[in-house]
Computed example of a mutant assay.
Amino acid sequence: MPRPSSPILSTDLIADSAIALVDAGKPFGVNALARQLGVTPSSLYNHVEGRDAIVELMRGRLAVQSEIAVPEGLEWDAVVEYVVRSQRAMFAAHPLVLPLLVGKPVTDVTVLGYYEALAEALLSAGFPDDDVLVIVAVLDAFALGSGLDLSAPPEVWHADPASALGRLVSRGEPGRERADRAFDLGVELLLASLRARLATEEAALSNGAATA
């Protein structure tokens, strides 16, 4: 039986090829992806609705490959740390994909799943509804920035050696070591701030109940 003249398309193959195309720094689009796959654009449209749908396939594929699934039974702060660390690792592996992802609404069920787990953990801990979505956005921005930081040059600041910044740079850790330390400190500060905020909220509720 002769082999097919073009690859048998699937959403996973489309997503993987799109990720590889962007990771290589090549222009991304339906036509470019079709050429990469050796098929016609119309063949792609039999599987996806268009460019935005391909981007969302990429988002979901990255989450699946990164195996981001919040374990059950974790305390809220452990859920926060798990999601932030998992996202950072995922984003760091594909920094060129990030601009595509942040420009589109999240609809992939796998990705929405870990955001849902994060929101549920914060709500269950006692954070007010009005705060939770903002906290999720803050954590998201931190993970995105920290992921991109891993693709920064070893020396981020070229400052005058006689300046305060220049002196600190000369004594500081370069590259990945600096990025990892910055990320760990950021996680520590975020969690400390969230714990303090939650304690303040609980104290306010307790005082309100006592005076009622």
Rank of each mutant, 00 (worst) to 15 (best):
A93M: 01
E75F: 05
A204L: 13
A141N: 07
Q87T: 02
W157V: 15
S86G: 11
F28K: 11
R3P: 01
A182S: 14
E81A: 15
D108N: 14
L189C: 08
F142N: 06
E72T: 14
L165G: 02
D77M: 06
R85V: 13
E120Q: 15
P2Q: 11
I135C: 03
A209L: 12
Q36I: 01
P161L: 05
L148H: 08
G175P: 06
V64N: 03
V80L: 04
W157K: 05
M1C: 03
L198F: 10
A20D: 14
V138T: 13
L198K: 03
F142M: 14
E120R: 13
V132Q: 02
G103L: 13
L190W: 10
V39F: 03
L190G: 02
S86A: 15
Q87S: 08
L194V: 05
A89I: 12
V156T: 09
D108G: 14
L150Q: 14
Y45V: 00
G186C: 09
I54D: 09
G126Q: 04
E177D: 11
P27T: 03
S170A: 15
A203W: 07
L118D: 00
N46L: 14
N207F: 14
R178V: 06
G145P: 08
A53F: 00
E177N: 09
L198N: 08
L148E: 03
S151V: 03
V48P: 04
I54G: 01
S17V: 04
L96R: 15
S193L: 12
A18S: 11
A179M: 13
A32E: 15
V22G: 09
N46K: 08
V30H: 06
L33D: 05
G186K: 04
A210Y: 00
V70F: 05
V138K: 08
D108I: 01
R178A: 14
S151T: 12
Q36L: 01
S124Q: 12
E67T: 05
L190N: 13
V111E: 09
